[in-house]
Design a protein around this nucleic acid. Structure first.
Lengths: 197, 197
DNA sequence: TTTGGCATGTAATCCGTTACATGATTAG
DNA sequence: CTAATCATGTAACGGATTACATGCCAAA
């Protein structure tokens, strides 16, 4: 088995367990909360990966007693903790160069072939995107505030804020594009009308 | 078979064939040239999808004589053209709302858990990203220029430029983030050193 | 003659989502 | 009682890449 296999999910999990012991359910929650602006995992990925990591001794399952210790926690939950080997593996991965998947956009695919279709529909798509990005900006602000107040002195604070800042800049760029493009599409529609007249 | 199956690839191909007849090889070339900033397909996707589209009569294979007509074209190539049914299917898809896959970033994953690792490595990652985005900006400018000169009066011109503009704004945002973050990481490194001293 | 670009395709594999199956506990 | 949330997992499937297999043709 290659060391890079399943890289993304493995290290997202190791990273989270590096902060504190968690269950699969906790990891899922974190991935649709704190991490959701740049990472998300489904159960179908998480549970099998936890099993693999445990087999490789990069994490270990804490005894049930410890798992049930927290108030409100179910006895059925399995708490996992990172091992020293896990921390080393994480550090190695963290220093390796990130490999991003190529950007893809169904939106831009529609825009590129826009002349073949309805300019009206395109403008609707752009409008919808603008709304989504606006909502995203609001959620970044909310999360930034929450992290600052809930973990003001946590040493990771500047790193967390940096990821949020990325999202913010990204959404602002998208919004700028939406505004520009609505205008352009308006003009394109007029030009087409004139051509047909 | 659901109508949305394989949506992305199908319509990227239909869109391209809407411009002019092409072979699988041509489509691949376009997808790593004109479309590469927001779309890319590998042979493993293209050839099977062409077969499917042909079976569904959304495209048809042109007779070999036509395929060999162009100078420099091999006899072995298969030229495909979109059918009227294909154009209708494309138009329907184009009006449907784009469904983007959630953003993911291995880079941000490393940054988020930055406190667990090496600030030095992170700064290198950020530097590499900055270089990549700078290169991307240059390639957008080059492509924009090329499209303007090669197809100045093509009615799709404004749409093509809009997709490039998206890439440009996106890369500029990424670059702004890189600059900001290098500074932040510098400070974080100092803070960590002081804490250890 | 050998390298590189044209050209078509398949098989293995991976990464990830969705849907399914199951059940405990808690708040209203 | 019942709905929501906590909690763990599997199976099926889909979308995409990578590597492989094959062969032609032109230019250096």
């Amino acid at each position: 088995m290659s060391p890079e296999r399943n890289a993304s999910t493995r290290f997202a999990i190791l990273g989270l367990l590096g902060l504190e012991p968690m269950s699969g359910y906790d990891i899922r929650r974190a991935s649709s909360d704190t991490l959701r602006h740049f990472w998300h995992e489904s159960y179908g990925q998480i549970y099998p990966t936890l099993a693999t990591l445990a087999r490789e001794k990069l994490i270990r399952e804490l005894p049930p007693a410890r798992a049930a210790a927290k108030p409100g926690a179910r006895a059925s939950r399995k708490l996992y903790a990172i091992t020293p080997a896990g921390r080393r593996a994480f550090a190695v991965w963290q220093e390796s160069a990130p490999r991003e998947r190529p950007f893809r956009s169904e939106m831009l695919l529609r825009v590129f072939f826009g002349d073949a279709g309805s300019a009206h529909a395109l403008r609707e798509h752009v409008g919808r995107l603008a709304k989504e990005e606006t909502a995203r900006l609001a959620s970044y602000r909310a999360l930034a505030r929450r992290l600052r107040s809930e973990a003001a002195s946590h040493p990771s604070q500047p790193y967390w804020q940096a990821t949020l800042r990325y999202g913010q800049l990204r959404s602002e760029a998208a919004l700028a594009w939406c505004r520009e493009t609505s205008r352009t599409l308006g003009k394109a529609r007029l030009a087409k009308k004139r051509a047909h007249a």
